[in-house]
Design a protein around this nucleic acid. Structure first.
Length: 342
DNA sequence: ACCAAAAGTAGTTCCTAGGG
DNA sequence: CCCTAGGAACTACTTTTGGT
């Protein structure tokens, strides 16, 4: 590779990012003709037009689309190598991070995250977007910096870190007329169900039921945990949902939490990010903030006890033990399957 | 409302200059 | 001499304007 190849790589990056020769030229500190020449050289080199006219604008060819994240990654890596290592200070940081996640994660981590950021980095903004199935695509493109998710399928170069585990509980309104201290499978299936499915994927609950030749009646499918919990608080339906999310809202909504009458595997919530951000001090700090927020937010919610005491409102968020069995009791079922919703 | 001309926008081509 | 960058001119296309 020659030095001017690096210049071509920079030009290609600007062209692919801007999708406009004039703006790419401005970004590169060149004239429009110079950027156009660079584009011509790259076209000749790659044997692909890369940017083609579409009326008034330019659009990327499939080859260019495929190259964009790779080129972005290479340029960021190269820029990082040459950047003087200034001491990193979260307090001085002025940056907006885009994070894919669900309201489940916001219910669990939101307050702790907010507290840490206010204390340590007043100039940092977090922009949360609803999770999508292939959230690694915008992470790779640079459209987002982080995803907090149950790990699904993603390219092997991505980095992950476990944040916290969660498990299923059943939530019904506190004065539900047909639900007692415990919930048998028959009682459970006699109820109407709300399903929270942020990604529109099938639930572990239905898979486990199907394995037993049973089926539940799902009346409502909603993408948000808040909405699902509110629905069961104002109806006689039952919601099988994240214990942490349910415990965060149960006192305010007047919900009662019960042990599901099914063996449902616990599941882990993880950070997912692209390797080009691995060594970015700000990103490293952000990941650490999420880890600390997870540690601060009710470290291990305990399981609802199978017997007794089920009629009262659940313990408030942050409380442990009490009417809930030790967490160790539910660690016997390993192997949460990817991408399930409650 | 329709159409054509003018104006505006964006990229390419041709030519020249300068550096290694 | 070769390569890169820049300026002027050109081309292609869209939008605006004005006349009917």
């Amino acid at each position: 590779m020659e030095p001017r190849d690096l210049a071509l790589l920079l030009a290609l990056d600007a062209l692919l990012q801007e999708e406009n020769v004039t703006r790419a030229a401005r970004r590169l500190g060149l004239s429009t003709p110079a950027a156009s020449h660079a584009l011509a050289r790259i076209r000749a080199r790659l044997g692909d037009p890369l940017l083609v006219r579409a009326g008034r604008r330019m659009v990327l060819t499939p080859r260019a689309e495929a190259l964009r994240p790779r080129v972005r990654s290479l340029v960021e890596e190269a820029t990082g190598v040459l950047r003087a290592a200034a001491p990193f200070s979260p307090r001085e940081l002025r940056r907006t991070f885009t994070v894919f996640t669900t309201d489940h994660v916001l219910l669990v981590l939101g307050p702790a995250l907010d507290r840490i950021l206010r204390d340590e980095a007043p100039g940092v903004a977090l922009r949360f977007l609803p999770s999508v199935v292939d959230d690694w695509v915008p992470l790779r493109d640079g459209a987002a910096e982080l995803s907090v998710c149950i790990l699904g399928h993603f390219p092997s170069e991505f980095r992950t870190r476990r944040l916290f585990t969660d498990r299923f509980v059943c939530a019904v309104r506190a004065d539900h007329p047909r639900v007692g201290k415990r919930l048998s499978l028959d009682e459970y299936l006699a109820l109407d169900h709300v399903l929270v499915s942020p990604l529109g994927l099938p639930s572990q609950v239905d898979r486990v039921l199907a394995e037993r030749g049973r089926e539940r009646r799902i009346r409502r499918v909603v993408p948000f945990f808040n909405a699902g919990l509110l629905m069961v608080a104002t109806s006689d339906d039952v919601l099988t949902v994240s214990e942490r999310a349910a415990r965060a809202l149960a006192p305010a909504l007047g919900l009662r939490l019960l042990e599901p009458p099914l063996p449902l595997a616990p599941y882990a919530l993880n950070l997912l990010w692209h390797p080009r951000l691995d060594n970015d001090p700000a990103h490293r700090w952000l990941r650490d903030v999420f880890v600390r927020a997870a540690a601060a937010a009710d470290p291990e919610p305990a399981a609802p006890r199978a017997r007794g005491g089920g009629a009262a409102r659940p313990a408030p968020p942050g409380a442990t033990g009490g009417r809930f069995a030790p967490a160790a009791a539910r660690r016997r079922r390993p192997g949460a399957r990817p991408r399930v919703s409650g």
